[in-house]
Write a protein that binds this DNA or RNA. Structure first.
Lengths: 331, 331
DNA sequence: TATCTTCGTGAAATCGTTTACATTTGTCTG
DNA sequence: CAGACAAATGTAAACGATTTCACGAAGATA
């Protein structure tokens, strides 16, 4: 691969001038600029992003880190797509790190990202006290959190109002006439899991429904946990007549069990899921769900991050997007 | 961040010696080694992967590029997971590039990847003549293709036998007694789309079934195309009694239409999908599908790539993994 | 004792950029 | 016409590692 040096030689100028043309900084004679552009074309010169990043510490590397807990979850895939679209438009490229809810893996990835001299990071930290991500923020790297905040840190966040969304969803279920509404929550260490549970509780209380602790279970946010806890709930002596599932994967696990038992949805048991999927209509019956604007969350996060890279001093923004209850036929 | 220079100063040695300790190359006195390790710990020194990559051109950067056509397709997500697991184990990190079947985007990403001095690339090229990926291979960068080969190039490939898998699936449908089996294929430019279609055709021929061209349609591999062509097929004066869908997303689109029309699966119309999903049992009825070992494809590809990075001369391998017909209840 | 190895280490070049500073030339002002 | 200033360009020092070469000391060999 041709380097700047080769270009400079070919054009009969110094590398400084080549650099100036490339970054169109300062003034350079129109004639030399042409000579240089010609040389660049002839040599098919492509600047090395690595060298650039090494030299100009920050903001010029056009490299973003993305740290997500679980790439199997369609929610994060959509977030990722949003980020990726913005990144592409701004000539950034993404290092994707999927830590699978494993904190050791998260720690290692963060170390690597630092040592890759990324210009910024979009992260969904393992929890809101996450010391590793906090350290990165303190070190001055531009960071935007998605889906989960960072307690006591003045950092950009993009999320939805989890508690209120859950509240509305469960209220809807109550109004529909369901009496025994169960909740399968995600990992309790994840803030959004707790908030959704809070919303669930509040809705029941506000509607004067006694909370039955046997109807509340919390797993690890996985597909398998959906299967396991739905089984447990359905095996109760007085099983629920509706389930409010805490995320995408749990919903799918629940559906597997319910279908397996040939139960009718929503006749025998209704299902309302937190997190919608693009293909929720392909489910039978189509799933009633709380739709987080996942793609938009990613997009906004990307925009905020690039803004912050260009202006590190700007005060932190907490952006709460609206989720929407998509009423279909499962509840 | 502390640099090697800082460590060297603190330990009272030269950076060369620090480097030697880090790469435990050559011999270094046990005492100095200790001093250096201590300094490293005290300064929380982390080597810069950027500098390393700049200096030692190839194989040392621990950076892999992954170029995939559509991250919304669960198949590629699983492939990505496989790659990611191997990468993590080998201390590599991944730059994820999703070109959304857009060749211009693909071209730009490839340029960037080159200029990031990646050590290797895993790609599902836009088509088997893809000049951009071919060029990269010719430039000597280690490349492994997944799902799609590269015509006339001696390059590692990991895939399944698409034609045979489709043949078996359609044969199964015929044996089940379906007479009018339709096929919704993916983008004809993608080799696997063509191979699956070939398998479909061959199965019909071998079973003495007349091919009805009105039952064969080809879209762009998307969810929307699934919706569109299923509608078209169902609106035929003599509609099919079964559909063999060409990929994941098409399958889901088809299900949406079928459910929307309140048709019974498989009573009114049977569905057999190419590509399984981890949650196929959550569909109602559970989907009968050809399961490509997506995760394993990614894993193998990752392993091959790392092998090739360490031994660029090793002859190319074409690895054909077995797909499996998962008989459930939709067909 | 003179020479040869081996071990442990440091000096310096290198990778491909950016950028602060210096230099040259020409034009303008008083 | 001297001095100031601007435009256009070059020189060289970074950035943070790896790696080649050289060198001194110590031990081995003849």
């Amino acid at each position: 691969m041709a380097s700047m040096n080769d270009v400079a030689k070919r054009a009969g100028v110094s590398i400084a001038t080549v650099s100036r043309v490339l970054n169109n900084s300062e003034s350079v004679n129109e004639e030399t600029r042409m000579k240089i552009l010609k040389a660049i074309k002839e040599l098919k010169y492509q600047p090395s992003r690595v060298a650039k990043r090494l030299r100009s510490k920050t903001g010029a590397g056009n490299l973003l880190g993305v740290l997500i807990p679980d790439i199997q979850n369609p929610f994060y895939v959509d977030v990722l797509r949003g980020i990726e679209d913005v990144a592409y438009q701004n000539n950034y490229v993404i290092i994707m790190c999927n830590f699978s809810q494993d904190e050791k893996k998260e720690a290692m990835y963060l170390e690597i990202l630092e040592s890759e001299a990324i210009d910024g990071l979009i992260a969904a930290p393992a929890n809101e006290d996450d010391p590793r991500v906090k350290k990165i923020v303190r070190n001055g790297l531009p960071v935007v959190c998605v889906d989960r905040g960072l307690k006591g840190m003045d950092v950009d966040v993009v999320w939805v109002n989890n508690e209120e969304s859950a509240y509305q969803a469960v209220s809807y279920m109550i109004e529909k006439g369901y009496k025994r509404i169960a909740h399968i929550g995600g990992l309790p260490t994840i803030p959004s899991s707790r908030l959704r549970l809070d919303g669930y509780r509040k809705a029941l209380e506000d509607h004067g429904i006694q909370i039955d602790d046997s109807l509340i279970v919390q797993g690890d946010s996985s597909y398998v946990s959906g299967i396991q806890y739905t089984t447990q709930l359905l095996d109760l002596t007085t099983p629920p007549d509706a389930i409010f599932t805490g995320n995408n994967l749990i919903t799918l696990g629940a559906l597997e069990v319910i279908n397996g038992r040939k139960l009718q949805i929503p006749g025998d048991i209704a299902v309302l899921g937190f997190d919608d999927m693009n293909w929720s209509n392909a489910l039978n019956p189509p799933l009633t769900a709380v739709r987080q604007p996942a793609y938009e969350i990613g997009k906004r996060a990307g925009e905020l991050l690039i803004q912050r890279i260009n202006d590190p001093k700007r005060p932190a923004i907490q952006m709460t997007l609206n989720s929407e209850l998509k009423v279909r036929q499962s509840c």
